[in-house]
């Protein structure tokens, strides 16, 4: 992994004027926000794909053990922001981050951060379910195995525990040796969640985890997220307004690479501060 340049504080944003919202969003001050300690704190964070700037001065706090939803029109940078939280963007050549992204107060882009260890702490579930072409058991066991766990009994227990957590155990317990590719779309996505849980992460990043699923499977994933937030910090990107409203405590609205507004979900959906947010939520654009 390429080491990232030292964070440049107070970088001046080239390009258009900063929308008023981004300078005075209510990340940690809003009185209605649940009083939870922050997990991620992003300050003055900008992101570049080569010369193209994708995120502009993001200031945002993500609380622990809660669901934070990222919404916004396609191409607004919400997925880019999500992937910068576990440094998945490092894989893409020529990407660059400025500003700070702090996890429990530590800069994850600091030069002494091992990205492999970081990703073990931060699980990720992708839009398209990506089971490995291996058995169901081996899929869940992959994380602990690559981390060096060799004891068979530990792995067996862990696989069972994670599949139960992901509400998949009852459906697959008799066919753990079968290929994971034979599962239905919804089952595959829950398997991916179980697989992510097996590395015992603190955070789960979800990039539109239910967008390719039917309503019944979507409901199961949402129930699951509701369960998981007792123990995990969850950040979810979604295009589905109702979904964001149903499952999240906080909602952040992104537009054109800027964070327009972040606040308590109920407030964002009933009484947003920004006109842009209101327009998007009521379907006038996006």
């Amino acid at each position: 992994m390429s080491s990232t340049p030292p964070p440049l504080k107070a970088i001046h944003v080239p390009g258009g004027p900063v929308p008023p919202g981004s300078s005075r969003r209510t990340a940690n001050g809003g009185e209605e926000q649940p009083a939870r300690p922050p997990k991620f704190v992003t300050s003055n964070m900008s992101f570049y794909y080569g010369a193209h700037q994708a995120l502009f001065n993001i200031n945002m706090t993500i609380p622990e053990r809660a669901v934070t939803a990222l919404i916004g029109p396609s191409g607004c940078g919400k997925s880019t922001y999500l992937r910068s939280l576990n440094r998945m963007n490092d894989i893409i050549e020529g990407t660059r981050v400025t500003g700070d992204v702090l996890l429990d107060g530590q800069d994850i882009y600091a030069s002494d951060v091992d990205v492999v260890a970081l990703r073990k702490r931060i699980g990720m579930v992708f839009q398209k379910s990506t089971p490995f072409p291996k058995s169901i058991f081996d899929n869940v066991a992959y994380g602990p195995r690559i981390a060096g766990e060799r004891r068979r009994s530990t792995i067996v227990d862990l696989v069972e525990h994670c599949l139960k957590q992901a509400a998949l155990w009852n459906e697959v317990k008799d066919r753990l040796r079968d290929s994971a590719m034979a599962l239905s779309g919804g089952q595959q996505q829950r398997l991916c969640i179980a697989r992510a849980l097996a590395t015992s992460p603190e955070v789960l990043l979800m990039d539109e985890p239910a967008s390719a699923l039917d309503p019944a499977s979507t409901a199961r994933i949402e129930d699951l997220i509701f369960e998981l937030k007792q123990n995990y910090t969850i950040v979810i990107v979604t295009h589905n307004m109702q979904q964001a409203a149903r499952i999240s405590e906080l909602t952040a609205f992104f537009c054109l690479g800027r964070l327009v507004e972040i606040g308590v979900t109920r407030q964002i959906f009933t009484n947003p501060e920004q006109k842009e947010t209101e327009d998007y939520i009521t379907g006038r654009f996006g």
């Binding site: 998945m88 894989i91 990703r119 699980g123 992708f126 072409p133 994380g143």
Partner: peptide, 21 residues
């Protein structure tokens, strides 16, 4: 690429991703 990304996201090193996936 999704196979590689899924492996990296679980905290695999580059070599582990190449060898196992």
């Amino acid at each position: 690429a999704s196979l590689r990304h899924a492996s990296y996201a679980l905290g695999a090193t580059r070599w582990q991703t190449i060898w196992n996936q």
